[in-house]
């Protein structure tokens, strides 16, 4: 299972890549694998203010559905509209295809997230 080093992870299997005030976020390889073929992604609205762990979207596969929780608080400044037409991109490359970009308001949210090593151990425990 692919868990890139430089990202931060949530226990709900989201990742975030922090770049100054911006955080790109998406779902992990573990999440896409367990969901199976993803058929639909409901994206948040640009401009929406979100709190940490608040629902910002829904990911549907044929036989399952998962809520996307925001890894950090802030404002949604961009969404990956490509996913509306091609949700399978999340299966093909879950880290290359971000879902939303958040303008972070409080970097302290990030302190509670897991490193790649911690997330790898977390997933191991779930199996």
């Amino acid at each position: 299972m692919n868990i890139p080093k430089k990202l931060l992870y949530t226990s709900e299997h989201e990742w975030i890549r922090v770049d100054g005030e911006k955080g790109h976020c998406g779902i992990t390889d573990y999440a896409q694998h367990h969901l199976g073929d993803i058929v639909f992604v409901e994206l948040p609205e640009v401009g929406e203010e979100v709190a940490v762990a608040e629902s910002i979207g829904v990911i549907e596969s044929v036989k399952a559905v998962a809520t996307l929780f925001s890894p950090a608080g802030g404002k949604i400044i961009e969404v990956n509209e490509e996913l509306e037409e091609a949700p399978e991109l999340l299966n093909e490359d879950p880290y290359g295809n971000w879902i939303a970009i958040i303008e972070l308001t409080d970097h302290s949210d990030l302190e509670k997230l897991m490193s790649a090593e911690a997330y790898a151990a977390f997933c191991e425990n779930l199996e």
Binding site: V39, V62, V65
Partner: peptide, 12 residues
């Protein structure tokens, strides 16, 4: 589109 339905989404 069964992900809308009760047997998958349950309380949601």
């Amino acid at each position: 589109l069964q992900a809308r339905e009760q047997h998958i989404r349950r309380e949601k």
